[in-house]
């Protein structure tokens, strides 16, 4: 039963780009007693087919920017190698805490961002109302 709930929730989060890993990894390590590295491995295996299915649908909806992605991949793969090498030489705890502080800053900014779409639609609405009024005036005269 828990497999159904955790599997589905992780799938939804992973598909939406929320990082489904955190649900599955937390569940496996805290409630099942799997160690962190094994849980990360399970999450990797879980993510591959889920991402594949999601991407088919995202592609149909024209949300995947493939051209931009092609620019990201070489740096991304090189970055992993460098990151793994650095982490095997120094303690990364402090770096990770700094990253977390940056996340708080960006997270708060995103939560309280000004909704430009709403603003735009309101502007559009007022434009439409103005146009309608002009039409009415023309009709009257």
């Amino acid at each position: 039963m828990m497999e159904i709930i955790i599997g589905t929730l992780s799938g939804i989060a992973a598909s939406m780009g929320f990082g489904g890993g955190f649900i599955l990894i937390i569940y496996l390590t805290v409630f099942v007693g799997v160690d962190q590295i094994t849980a990360q491995g399970i999450n990797l295996l879980f993510f591959l087919p889920i991402a594949f299915v999601s991407l088919i649908i995202h592609h149909k909806n024209k949300f995947v920017q493939w051209k931009k992605l092609m620019y990201l991949i070489p740096g991304g793969l090189f970055g992993i190698l460098v990151g793994v090498w650095i982490s095997s030489h120094i303690n990364v705890d402090f770096l990770q805490k700094m990253f977390a502080s940056l996340l708080i800053f960006v997270g708060v900014k995103e939560i309280f961002h000004k909704n430009s779409e709403k603003h735009l639609t309101k502007q559009k609405q007022s434009n439409i109302i103005k146009l309608l009024k002009c039409n009415d005036r023309e009709k009257d005269s």
Partner: peptide, 30 residues
């Protein structure tokens, strides 16, 4: 079950507004 979730998530992503998506993700970052 993850694959079922993937389909549901993709439908959510299509129908959610960009603004709400940004606010939810901001919460996840926190």
């Amino acid at each position: 079950y993850g694959i079922i979730g993937a389909v549901i998530g993709a439908i959510f992503l299509k129908n959610i507004s960009n603004s709400v998506l940004r606010r939810i993700f901001g919460g996840i970052m926190l």
